[in-house]
Amino acid sequence: MKHVGAVLVRDHTKLDADVKTLAGRLNVTLPASPSAEQKKELAAVQAKDGSSAYDAAWLTTQDAAHRKTLALIDHESPADLTPCPSQCRRALTEASCPGRPATAA
């Protein structure tokens, strides 16, 4: 778990920087804090801290969040990602799930 956590910290630090850069280029305002749903999910995982159920809860939550993100990326139309549809999709997909091929734009 510690290795998985370290990889996620590394990858998400890069992803956050890339998304901030992209949002600036596209003049998009990013949320300043987690959504109510995200806060609820985090609280549910944190409630299991110190128990044998924590790792499974954390992994399940991470898996669901990543699948949701990838589904959003896959279902964006090229027009929604103007001015850089294929480049943005490729960058977001690779940053969210390194090694996963980007869906064709």
Results as ranks from 00 to 15, higher is better:
8 L>H: 08
10 R>V: 11
11 D>F: 02
13 T>P: 05
14 K>D: 14
14 K>E: 12
15 L>V: 09
15 L>H: 12
15 L>A: 14
16 D>C: 13
16 D>I: 05
16 D>R: 05
17 A>R: 08
19 V>F: 01
20 K>Q: 11
21 T>C: 13
22 L>E: 06
28 V>I: 14
28 V>E: 05
28 V>G: 11
28 V>D: 10
29 T>Q: 06
31 P>H: 07
32 A>D: 04
35 S>A: 08
35 S>E: 05
36 A>C: 10
37 E>N: 04
37 E>R: 06
38 Q>E: 10
39 K>S: 13
40 K>C: 14
41 E>W: 01
44 A>E: 00
44 A>L: 00
44 A>W: 01
46 Q>D: 10
47 A>D: 15
47 A>I: 09
48 K>S: 15
48 K>H: 07
50 G>S: 00
51 S>Q: 03
52 S>T: 14
53 A>M: 05
53 A>W: 03
53 A>V: 12
54 Y>Q: 07
56 A>F: 03
56 A>K: 15
56 A>P: 08
56 A>S: 12
58 W>K: 09
58 W>D: 14
59 L>K: 12
62 Q>M: 13
63 D>G: 15
63 D>M: 04
64 A>E: 09
64 A>Y: 10
65 A>C: 01
65 A>R: 00
66 H>T: 15
68 K>N: 13
71 A>T: 06
71 A>H: 04
71 A>Q: 01
72 L>V: 13
73 I>Q: 04
74 D>S: 08
75 H>D: 07
76 E>L: 08
76 E>F: 12
77 S>V: 09
78 P>C: 00
79 A>W: 06
80 D>V: 04
81 L>C: 02
81 L>H: 02
83 P>A: 00
86 S>F: 05
87 Q>F: 09
88 C>I: 12
90 R>V: 13
90 R>W: 13
91 A>D: 08
92 L>E: 00
92 L>S: 02
